[in-house]
Design a binder for these strands. Structure first.
Lengths: 196, 196
DNA sequence: GTCTATAATGCGATAGAC
DNA sequence: GTCTATCGCATTATAGAC
């Protein structure tokens, strides 16, 4: 393993990951401007200036995390059509997946990024391109399938889904304080919104 | 009308109100740290330093707005038991009221204040005291009434309400971009969560 | 009463010791 | 590789002109 190896030094990567995970926890709750580098350092248990040995700036960490979040979201949606079961089963699985601890933080981060005026330009572009509309486009066929099967109520699929996604968003915001998995058992209640 | 009159100079009050309303619009979307005094000034159409003739600090404006928001929320809830109609009608009215433009901004402000670590101490106290638990306590009787009448599904009233309030929160976050009243017609869909 | 210019402060980012 | 000390800039807040 020479130093020209594209795979970086393991301990370097480990440190970077540690800082990124700490940053995600703070960014997801406090947003970009509400997060001070000192908070990330404290959360990671390192000194204030060390993050800059691994990342150029606060915005670089934020952007990197947004990219990861979008990839994770897209991956979760891509897996959906292959899942077994009825459309109801798939939407249920999708909901449970979003409420899962790790995805929850990513989702909150995307929410923060979406509202923030001071987000880096690249983040704004990525969000606009992939976040809301893409998710709708990919979920819509599943919903339509369910409508045709009589599992879901009639109505504009995109509007229904936007309503449903908003609802999940609200739950995750509250859930930030709640114990892990607190809302999982309420998924079927949520899905009543889509049914009739 | 002497200058010792507790009612201040009308034009002074008008200016203060103008700045506060501008600040509310920005705070509700960008949070405390995401809002720069220059943004409030721009939103109000005044110069950068003028706000300090009317308020001591950014935090003072924020705190004042949080107090107003809590009063408005409490007033809205206090009126509920006197409303005519079934418990379903009352919850529907409550929901519509929250989604109304002016209350929406107050509600988003409270959300921002609740999550923010850098909120003034007084704000944290007020929020903890009045916001979540108080709302639940006052709404719970109406829900229980509806459960006894068979309008709502069974289950822990506080948990059900927390779920429902979370859902409204999510809707308001999305709604920030949507046209006024966009979600009003979906209220009955939302209320399916509480029904059976 | 309002604006522009400036002081004070807090934070992002860097440099240098270990 | 990590920490502490410091620089420079953005932003809060004030002062002084009109």
């Amino acid at each position: 393993m020479s130093s020209q190896e594209p795979i970086a030094d393991p301990s370097l990567d480990a440190r970077k990951e540690q800082i990124k995970r700490a940053a995600l926890r703070v960014f997801a709750e406090q947003g970009l401007s509400g997060t001070k580098m000192s908070m990330i350092a404290a959360e990671a248990g390192i000194s204030q200036g060390l993050s800059y040995r691994y990342f150029k700036s606060k915005e670089e960490i934020f952007t990197l995390l947004v990219e990861e979040a979008l990839e994770a979201a897209q991956a979760a949606i891509d897996r959906l059509p292959d899942l077994p079961g009825t459309p109801t089963d798939r939407i249920r699985a999708f909901t449970a997946n979003m409420l899962d601890a790790s995805h929850k933080r990513y989702f909150l981060l995307l929410q923060q990024a979406q509202k923030s005026e001071e987000a880096p330009e690249r983040v704004k572009q990525l969000i606009e391109r992939y976040s809301a509309q893409e998710t709708l486009n990919r979920l819509a066929p599943i919903l339509v399938q369910g409508q045709q099967a009589g599992e879901f109520c009639e109505g504009d699929p995109e509007r229904l889904l936007l309503l449903y996604l908003s609802v999940i968003t609200g739950l995750m915001l509250q859930d930030a304080n709640a114990p892990e998995g607190y809302w999982l058992q309420e998924i079927d209640r949520l899905m009543k919104i889509l049914q009739n």
